[in-house]
């Protein structure tokens, strides 16, 4: 089972790069790339999303504001040139924080973190289910 991802960045090239990184990672599936928070909100309404790669500094609505506004949060990985936002980023439960320029190795490391998280929670779910079945 692949992890369903979206990428959000206002800069077209940065977005294309993250999109291409997602596509070349076997355990990730690219659902959509979004140029701004509004596009992302539309996608999140319609589709199931497990993981979000999101830029922080964007016009209109910043990445942080978007994440804060979500009731049901997917996993979050911030992609940004702003290292000073890291603390705030982790406060909204981001699992990782990628500093631009981003190379594939750093991207993959963050993606792996997410994979491990999903595997663990999946196992937990399965175990819960088994326990309940045994009751």
């Amino acid at each position: 089972m692949k992890i369903k991802c979206i990428a959000i960045d206002d800069e077209p090239l940065a977005l294309e790069q993250i999109g291409s990184y997602v596509q070349k990672t076997p355990f990730l599936e690219l659902i959509a790339t979004c140029k701004n928070a509004y596009e992302a909100l539309d996608i999140l309404k319609e589709k199931e999303v497990d993981l979000m790669f999101i830029d922080i500094d964007m016009p209109d609505i910043s990445g942080l504001d978007l994440v804060k506004s979500l009731v049901k949060k997917p996993q979050i990985i911030f992609t940004t040139a702003y290292s000073e936002y890291a603390f705030e980023g982790f406060q909204v439960d981001a699992i990782d924080y990628l500093l631009k320029p981003i190379n594939y190795a750093a991207f993959l490391k963050a993606a792996n973190k997410s994979k491990i998280w999903f595997e663990v929670s999946f196992h937990r779910l399965k175990n819960d289910f088994i326990l309940r079945a045994n009751d």
Binding site: E16, Q17, A81, I102
Partner: peptide
């Protein structure tokens, strides 16, 4: 701003592939 530099480098990094 330093962000300008970092973002620009990131874009160039992306352009190298594209």
């Amino acid at each position: 701003s330093p962000h300008f530099l970092m973002n620009t480098l990131n874009n160039i990094h992306a352009l190298i592939d594209l």
